[in-house]
Every structure is written in C-alpha cells, then in structure tokens.
C-alpha cells in the first residue's frame, strides 16, 4: 500500500477537520483576551499556550486553518477555472496565434515576481483576504494553463484524437471528451501542489500585514505577532509554524502519493 498517500491524506484531512470543527467548537473563544493568562507555555488547559493577549493559541490555529484553506481553495479554483480552459484552447490551436498569445501571456505573468505583484495589488487595492486570493489566484492561472497544454499536446498527436476528428468532432468537444479525462490525474496532482503553495503564500502575505485583516485569525499574522516576542515566548512562533509545515507537508505528500497511485509517469511542474 502507498504509505506516502496515507500519511499525506491523513495530515491534510486533519487540517480540514480542524478547520471545519472550528465552526462548531474550539476549546476557547479564539478572540477572547485574557491578559492575566498571557504568554503561557503549552499546558493542560491551553494545549498550545497563550499569546501576548492571553488568547488560546490552539483555538486560534483551528480558526486560522479556515482562512488558510479558504484562501488556497479559491485561489486554486481561479487557477483551474481559467488556466485549464486556456491550456486546452492553446493546445487545440497548437502553433496558431491563439496558442502564441496564451503562452506569451503566461510567460509574462511568470516574469513578474509573484509575491511582489501580490504586494502591489494588496497595497494599491487595500489589504484583505479577497485581494490576497486574487493575487495568489492570478499566478495559478499560468501554472494550470502550462500543465494542461503540456499534457494535452502529446495527446493531440495520438491517433485516437485523429479518429475522433474523422468522426466529425470539433476541437472543443474533443478537448472535453478525450483530452480532459486523460489529463485529469495530472491536474489533480498539480492542484494539491498549488494548494500547498497557496497556503505558504497566504501565510507570507498575512505575515507582512497584507492578508486577512484582524479580527480574522490567520497563521501568518500569528507569526508576525510572535516575531518581537520570539525570545521570551518561542511557542508563539513554533505552534503556527508547525501548523503551516504540517499542512504543506501533508498536501505535498498527498500529491506525490496520488501521482504514484494514479500514474508513475505523470509529469508535474513543481516550482
């Protein structure tokens, strides 16, 4: 049995469950300040300790998972929703001007340092989860377009596509009926990778204050809060950090496990 898949799936499932559970139950109210109990190290009452306002870190991390997952989810959705059709279109018109324009556009987006543009967007249009989602999502579009086109091109040269064309099917129909099912594995694996990158990007943006705004808890901002206190309360940095690492690790392992389980020869771009 595929151990990578099980480990990755369990870690990812754990985070999703924590996020969903936070809607109905957290050990404490994640926003409730309790100054007398501030900066407690992890203990029986506050499993992950408390922050400088005495808030329960465990509850904050559970609610923070919500933000991370939501932002990454929508950003990946944007990437798939726009990138896959563009990639299919480019592949169907290989070598034509449509292909050229789509691929040059991709190159152009890749030429922008993604975080810099995310900063620019959030700086100009205001910080917040929605702008963070857009900023991260934009950079998922060329990734999915490229992977889709890369997977579709060799298929277009296959004889079963020629047979479909001989049967009078058009490019759009062939893309949906024949190309998409054959690159679905590739896209699933790429989606898990982009999901993990989305979580890292969201954390980075909220760390510099450009992601979700207070009072919405987010892992990145918890780390920003921890920075000045890291020498006296290291757990404030360690706990959210572990949450991020385990989630990203889980998603990456899930992606690798899926790739091995679905098709060992699958090519995925990981950058």
């Amino acid at each position: 049995m595929n151990r990578t898949l099980i480990l990755g799936g369990s870690l990812s499932a754990l985070m999703v469950i924590a996020a969903l559970m936070s809607f109905v139950w957290t050990p404490f109210d994640h926003g409730a300040m309790n100054i007398p109990e501030k900066l407690q190290i992890p203990n029986g009452t506050h499993w992950f300790g408390t922050d400088h306002f005495g808030r329960d870190m465990f509850s904050m991390i559970m609610v923070g998972a919500r933000t991370s997952i939501a932002v990454a989810c929508v950003a990946v959705g944007i990437g798939i929703g726009l990138g896959v059709p563009l990639g299919l279109w480019a592949a169907a018109r290989q070598g034509g001007w449509v292909d050229e324009v789509i691929m040059r556009g991709n190159d152009l987006i890749f030429a922008f340092p993604s975080l810099v543009i995310a900063i620019l967007i959030t700086a100009v249009f205001g910080a917040g989860a929605v702008n963070a989602i857009i900023a991260i999502g934009i950079f998922n579009i060329p990734v999915f377009a490229r992977v889709t086109r890369g997977g579709a091109l060799p298929l277009w040269a296959r004889e079963f596509i020629l047979a479909a064309r001989v049967s009078g099917k058009g490019a759009a129909r062939i893309s949906v009926e024949h190309i998409l099912p054959n690159i679905a594995n590739l896209l699933i694996v790429q989606a898990t990778i982009q999901f993990s990158l989305g979580i890292l990007a969201e954390a980075a943006l909220s760390y510099v204050g450009l992601g979700a705004q207070p009072p919405t808890p987010s892992w990145g901002r918890m780390l920003a809060d921890a920075q000045t206190l890291v020498s006296i309360a290291p757990h404030m940095a360690l706990m959210p950090g572990f949450a991020i690492i385990l989630t990203v690790l889980g998603l990456n392992l899930l992606g690798d496990g899926l790739r091995d389980a679905l098709d060992p020869r699958l090519r995925v771009s990981r950058v």
Binding site: S196, L200, A203, A204, Y207, L223, A226, Q227, V230, S231, P234, A237, P240, G241, I244, I245, L246, V248, L249, N252, L253, D256
Partner: peptide, 22 residues
C-alpha cells in the same frame, strides 16, 4: 527536501534568529 519545501522561509528565519542570534 519534502520538509524543506514545506517550511515558510520567514518562519525559518525567525527560528534561525532564535537559535543562532538569541
């Protein structure tokens, strides 16, 4: 490398500060 990919660099930076500077 699997773990290395999962670590946010700014968090890693904080840990380096904690260990090697503080």
């Amino acid at each position: 490398t699997q773990i290395g990919i999962a670590i946010p660099n700014f968090w890693f930076a904080m840990m380096l500060v904690l260990i090697f500077a503080i």
